[in-house]
């Protein structure tokens, strides 16, 4: 897929148009829904964790911009097989690096929405929303 301008690199567009792990797990062991107050975008995340605290499967659902949706697609890919401790250690820097495109501070909030949903699902304090 051809790259677009600014943050719309081929990888982002590809994940947006063909998202991985979209849907809802039922049953799930962990779930959360987060929204971005700037635009009302919403992401819900469902995880199934096995007896040894390892993420067996994960799904996301919601409505949002290309950045938040691609970020969710990439994040959910990376979560499979991780332990809860490893998932809990994911941070802003890691998410932005995974996306690998330049983002303004406002658009960064779109990119971090899936991470905030993950942190809520794991019962951890959400990522800072500051600029």
């Amino acid at each position: 897929m051809a790259s677009g301008p600014g943050p719309y690199q081929a990888q982002i567009l590809d994940h947006y148009k063909h998202p991985h792990n979209r849907g809802t797990l039922d049953p799930a062991t962990h779930a959360a829904r987060e929204s971005n107050p700037l635009c009302g975008d919403e992401i819900s995340l469902t995880l199934r964790v096995d007896g040894s605290d390892r993420i067996e499967d994960v799904r996301f659902d919601g409505e949002g911009c290309a950045i938040s949706m691609a970020s969710a697609s990439l994040l959910t890919d990376s979560l499979k097989g991780k332990t809860l401790a490893e998932a809990g250690a994911l941070d802003r820097v890691g998410i932005l690096k995974g996306l690998g495109v330049p983002l303004s501070s406002v658009r960064e909030q779109c990119a971090l929405l899936p991470l905030r949903a993950l942190q809520a699902a794991l019962g951890r304090p959400p990522a800072a929303q500051g600029h």
């Binding site: 600014g6 719309y8 635009c39 950045i67 303004s104 658009r107």
Partner: peptide, 19 residues
């Protein structure tokens, strides 16, 4: 999405709002 519209327009030097 409106945010993506605004981001692409920004690259073109066109300032609009989204949200």
């Amino acid at each position: 999405h409106p945010h993506d519209i605004a981001s692409i327009l920004d690259v073109e030097g066109v300032c609009i709002r989204s949200g």
